[in-house]
Amino acid sequence: MSEKGFEPKIVGFLCYWCSYTAADLAGISRLKYPPNIRIIRVMCSSRVDPVFIIKALLDGADGVLVAGCKPGDCHYQKGNYYARRKVALTKKILESLGLEPERVMLSWVPASEAPKFAEVVKEFTERIRKLGPNPMKERVFV
């Protein structure tokens, strides 16, 4: 991929009930989005431990997307609200580590909104592309 310049590597934690389903639907609908994202399935966005996000960034991911059901629609009643808090706090931690909090994004993607999923991936990939490579990569490995 490197011959095209910087191709970010993005990890997506998707809740199984809404966002993962939307990703499936994007496939079924043959929507196109950048291939930079690698999806990890979780049952609920609230399962995303801040450790996952920080570990991903320390290990060289350029961006982390967390996606869950839209507010009020959580399959587990209110897990997405907890996810929102966890992500907000994680961003604070990242700042203190000297990492741009913009490398983490939380999005609500309902099961039926495949186009939104594709849109979110496109947008986020563009954002990370502009931010450039994760500085942690060099810092840790140099």
Partner: peptide, 10 residues
């Protein structure tokens, strides 16, 4: 238990 995992992350 429904297996959402919120407790594990908490």
């Amino acid at each position: 238990c429904k297996g959402c995992g919120l407790c594990a992350a908490t």
